[in-house]
């Protein structure tokens, strides 16, 4: 109990003093997660739209795979990437292991199925009459697709925010491929794991509080997005 209260007091003082190490860890976390989210969105959104709007063989298999990969265990992704990126692996020559790029790659793999699957879900749930109305108003196939995606925007945004939540809170994969190197690949979650192991609770608690605040902000934003998208079409 004593260590918790002491840890909390020191944690708040760390946050209040804008500690340089703390800020560096926060900025690297945001950078890695932000870039991973951008890449996962750039790939996942068209993938979700393609699977949702085009008919092709094995479509059901593709949907099942997307849904299954949503629950990918991060440590398995970390292990898989480690084997590929390690010196003896097929991409070992690139020297990516224990770099922020490897962490971005891991987080992209984790966020991609979430964004693709939730975007797919949002797109297939758009009332078919929207597609027909767009066609009757003279839209080209591309304009029809864009209009459907626009209608699905709140669901798509929910998917992107869920992806952000996943990568921000992730520890297993980035620890394995990032190596938790101080000042280079150390992010909030890996620092919390390390400092807790060392019994250094103040930094762990400070980062934990910041992570919780960020998570709360993401969830509040998600809630707002979902509420805004809750209007039902005229029947």
């Amino acid at each position: 109990m004593h260590s918790i209260s002491e840890g909390l007091i020191k944690a708040f003082s760390l946050i209040g003093s804008f500690d340089a190490d703390l800020l560096k860890i926060i900025f690297l976390t945001l950078e890695v997660s932000g870039v991973a989210l951008l890449i996962a969105t750039a790939l996942g959104l068209p993938l979700g739209a393609l699977v949702g709007l085009r008919k092709f063989p094995l479509q059901r298999v593709a949907i099942s795979l997307m849904n299954t990969f949503m629950g990918l265990p991060p440590v398995v992704v970390g292990l898989f990437l480690y084997l590929i990126l390690s010196r003896s692996g097929p991409l070992g020559f690139m020297g990516l292991l224990y770099t922020p790029l490897a962490m971005i790659l891991a987080q992209t793999i984790l966020a991609l199925p979430i964004i693709a699957s939730l975007s797919h879900s949002a797109i297939v749930n758009v009332d078919p009459i929207i597609r027909q109305a767009s066609i009757t108003l003279g839209a080209t196939p591309v304009q029809v697709t864009l209009n459907i995606m626009k209608e699905a925007r709140y669901g798509i945004m929910s998917g992107i925010i869920a992806g952000l939540g996943r990568v921000m809170a992730e520890v297993g994969a980035v620890l394995i491929v990032g190596g938790n190197i101080a000042g280079y690949t150390r992010v909030m979650t890996t620092t919390i794991a390390l400092e807790t192991d060392k019994g250094n609770f103040e930094l762990a608690i400070a980062l934990g509080i910041i992570l919780l605040v960020l998570s709360l902000a993401i969830n509040m934003f998600l809630h707002l997005v979902q509420r805004k998208g809750a209007l039902q079409p005229i029947r």
């Binding site: 027909q132 209608e151 079409p233």
Partner: peptide, 12 residues
């Protein structure tokens, strides 16, 4: 152009 029975108004 065709106006459908349910119209299909866009969420905007």
């Amino acid at each position: 152009t065709l106006v459908l029975p349910g119209v299909g108004v866009f969420n905007t």
